[in-house]
Design a protein around this nucleic acid. Structure first.
Lengths: 190, 190
DNA sequence: CTTTCTACCGAACGGTCGGTCTGCTAATGT
DNA sequence: ACATTAGCAGACCGACCGTTCGGTAGAAAG
């Protein structure tokens, strides 16, 4: 197997096992078994367990943030833009179910610098929500209320999806995203 | 120090430390240090680390569920009842911030029987939400949409509070609860 | 004063963990 | 034909973990 494939396999196995057992409870031996390697051989590809954890999230949040950027910059009423942003965010959660789960759980195990990086990205996402909400309130599309609380309420709805969504179940990803986008608008309208 | 006080102190310390470091990463030594005991002496009061974890949640969910029962059984329109239920639930989360945090994080570390017990209680809470939502749709108070998705959206908003609320900050507990109760109604109304 | 019981200490145990080190093997480059 | 190196196995280390246990100071009971 090529080296790049091994790395991918190791990360995939680690993500799966961290999700199932948690970061601390998961052992490097289990990850090694899952990819068919000896435990010590893992350290040919990674430098530490913590670094492996952090690497699992590389690019994911930035990818979703990029999609939110374009969704937010398209012309349209605040209602339309909110719908688009919510859709993109929910789909981002749904397409990274395991990663979101592990991040929410293990955020505190991150080293300081990596944590700051991810936090910045998340803050940027929150800003997208809040900006369109404030815009909507100014233009009269949305009812005037605490915009920060509105943002947190919305983020809660959308992020919590990772706790109950089961792929292959009754609902497709887009069905959930569309439904929540509509609900978000309703929650804010007068 | 009296034995009952010690037990209380141990649980308080464990809850605090589990919240800060996670169940697996927290050591019995830290808990012992926090209450001023030798590590081994903890086992005079508890039988295992896992049992200590489970005991932290005794009665909490049942307490909130009881309050939801009374809130749901009071007469009133679905709007009023929904408001009351959301209020009680959010306040329940806010008054048990650490416990909710640890539970969400360590649910998978619970032994089977304890897990089933807590899951039943949570299911009962979800049923309260869904029932009043379905009632409201039937009576025309709420717009007809997928009631299960509405329940999950609402639960997400209310439960996610534990991730961002900081006691002593800008918002009081009742301020958040009241605001979210109002938002819940808006999200469901036509 | 003696016995009993409570609350606790200190040491140790078996086991697991993340991580290191040495060296083999097969492929690759020259 | 030879040297080099990537890729990996397997033994191993020190640290730390949850848990157990023999023992004991001091209060309470008799």
């Amino acid at each position: 197997m090529r080296a790049a494939d091994r790395e991918t396999a190791i990360r995939a196995a680690a993500l799966r096992i961290f999700r199932r057992k948690g970061y601390d409870a998961a052992s490097m031996q289990e990850i090694a078994d899952a990819v068919g390697l000896n435990k010590g051989s893992l350290y040919y590809y990674i430098s530490s367990k913590q670094e492996l954890l952090v690497r699992l999230f590389e690019g994911r949040a930035e990818q979703v943030l990029g999609e939110m950027d374009t969704a937010a910059s398209r012309p349209g009423t605040p209602r339309e833009r909110l719908r688009a942003i919510v859709r993109v965010y929910v789909l981002g959660v749904l397409r990274n179910l395991d990663a979101v789960h592990v991040y929410v759980r293990e955020e505190h195990s991150f080293p300081r610098t990596a944590l700051q990086q991810v936090r910045r990205t998340h803050q940027a996402m929150r800003d997208h929500f809040e900006r369109v909400i404030v815009d909507g309130m100014r233009q009269g599309d949305f009812v005037e209320r605490d915009s920060k609380l509105a943002t947190l309420a919305l983020l809660g709805t959308c992020t919590w999806v990772h706790r109950w969504y089961r792929p292959g179940g009754r609902l497709t990803e887009t069905a959930v995203a569309d439904d929540f986008a509509e609900r978000a608008v309703r929650m804010l309208c007068a």
